[in-house]
Every structure is written in C-alpha cells, then in structure tokens.
C-alpha cells in the first residue's frame, strides 16, 4: 500500500529555487533514503513534507492531501525528527518525551492517561534513557538530546517516521543502536521510514529505496542499489565516490 506520495514539490526562498518539482513515493514497509551533496535541498524536502515551510505541489498520505489533515491527526500518522535541537528551559527528559503524546490528547481540558504514561516509559526504555528520565535536558550531551527526541517520536507512535540526519551528534555505538532500533520499528505492519542521510554506506545498508538529490532536483528515484550507483553519485557529487569509499575501507585491512 502506498503511504506517502510527493508530487511536483517545489520550495522557493525569495527568488531562489531550493527544491524543484521533486516527486517520489513510499510504500508500506519501505525505508526511503534521501541522499545528495550539501545544499541539494534534502532537509528542505523533509520540511516541506512536514508542512514546516511553504511549498507548492502536493503531498498525499494514504491518498489524502496532508494539507487536509488536522494537526493532531497528521501527527498521529507522521512523526518528524529534526537534525538539530536547542532547548532553553530545564524540562526533564520525561517531560520532553511526554510531549510526544500530545497528538492523543483530546480537547484543552485533557490530562495524561495511563496509555500515555506506558508509551513514554516504553520509549524511554527503548532508547536507553530510563536512567536519565528525571534529568534536565539542559544537562545532556548532543547525542543524549538526539535520543530524547527520538524517544519522543517513538512515544508519538506514528505510521511514518521522517528523520533528518537521525544519527547526527551520535557516536558509532549509538549510530548502530539507532539504525537497528528504527529497522526493528519499521518491521511492524503499516509502517515506513524516510530519512535524510549523508553516510552513503548507511543508506545502502538500511535503505530499500532512495532519492538522490542534486541542486534542488531529484535526479534519481528507485531501489537504493540502482539509485546510488557509481554514475549517479559521480554526477551528483562531482567526484569518484565509489573509489573514495573503497579507499577508506582499505584502511581497515591492516588493522
């Protein structure tokens, strides 16, 4: 079943075209990787799908235009993890994760339910944040903060995860952990993932489909192995990507 369809999506800042007529789709169970060099418009595509920036074109979730969804209804279906987080107030980790349950509260008089508490505790356990649950988010490292917002999105329990550089700020241990977590999460029925990635090895390892972007355009879309082939990558990055990746890997042979 088709979960998300992006049709002719364009974003313009002033006179500058950041994203130009981008189209792609995500089926249930897929993990779509959005790859491309810096400034290609990857994060802007994610922001446009999440309705954070003004755009033209259409985005359909399960056949219905996302503009027709109410805010809370959309959040129950689509969860977005941003690349950077800056918090100014000393909320506890549990409070920030608990905000992920906002989409399930009804009316302005609603409080928290037992189901909300359970979802938050599960999300904290899943991301290994139980010990930090009552700690102020101002006292966390960048990696810990990224995990807090990942836990928030798990508590939100959407059908489609949109992740902008999900392993930004994370060391190798947590990179592996996060990708494994998302991979497990995706295996449940009626779920799919879209993520912006810089690391092409991660894209190849975990992605099922991919969109390669260059200067605001989607230059290739399809199965990840076909999209991230040498020709496409060389054209987009202006260098021999495969040779570079292989030369990096060779460094490990003598260790």
């Amino acid at each position: 079943m088709r979960m998300l369809e992006v049709k002719d999506l364009s974003v313009r800042y002033g006179t500058l075209d950041i994203v130009k007529n981008v189209s792609f789709s995500v089926e249930e169970g897929e993990w779509l990787m959005i790859a491309g060099p810096n400034g290609a418009g990857k994060s802007t595509v994610v922001s446009a799908i999440a309705q954070s920036v003004a755009s033209t074109g259409d985005v359909f979730f399960c056949g219905k235009n996302v503009r027709q969804y109410r805010s809370q209804e959309l959040a129950r279906h689509i969860g977005v993890l941003e690349q950077n987080h800056a918090v100014n107030y000393a909320f506890s980790v549990r409070e920030v994760v608990g905000l992920g349950r906002y989409a399930y509260s009804s009316g302005i008089f609603a409080g928290k339910s037992d189901a909300d508490d359970d979802a938050v505790e599960q999300a904290l356990a899943l991301t290994g944040l139980e010990a930090l649950a009552d700690k102020s988010v101002l006292k966390l490292s960048g990696g810990e903060l990224q995990r807090v917002f990942l836990a928030q999105i798990f508590a939100q329990d959407p059908d489609l995860l949109i992740l902008d550089e999900p392993t930004n700020h994370l060391d190798l241990v947590y990179q592996k952990q996060v990708f494994s977590l998302i991979e497990e999460w995706r295996k449940e029925p009626s779920r799919a993932v879209i993520s912006v990635v810089h690391d092409l090895s991660l894209a190849l390892a975990y992605g099922s489909t991919a969109v390669l972007m260059d200067r605001g355009e989607a230059v290739a879309f399809g199965p990840v192995q076909e999209v991230l082939n040498a020709d496409h990558l060389d054209a987009a990055y202006g260098m021999d990507v495969k040779a570079w990746m292989q030369s990096l890997l060779k460094q490990w042979e003598n260790i």
Binding site: S52, S71, R76, H85, F91, L99, Y102, Q152, Q156
Partner: peptide
C-alpha cells in the same frame, strides 16, 4: 492557563510543537 501543554511544546521549540501535532 488552559494552553499549558501547547506552551510547553512551544518552549521546547516551535518546529517540534508543529511536529507533535500542535496547531502552531
């Protein structure tokens, strides 16, 4: 006072508030 949850979301970040379903 009734908008306390929405204000919490804004205090964490306006974009995050939008993502969790607040009609910002």
């Amino acid at each position: 006072l009734r908008l306390h949850r929405e204000l919490n979301a804004f205090a964490v970040g306006e974009e995050n508030a939008r993502h969790i379903g607040v009609n910002v």
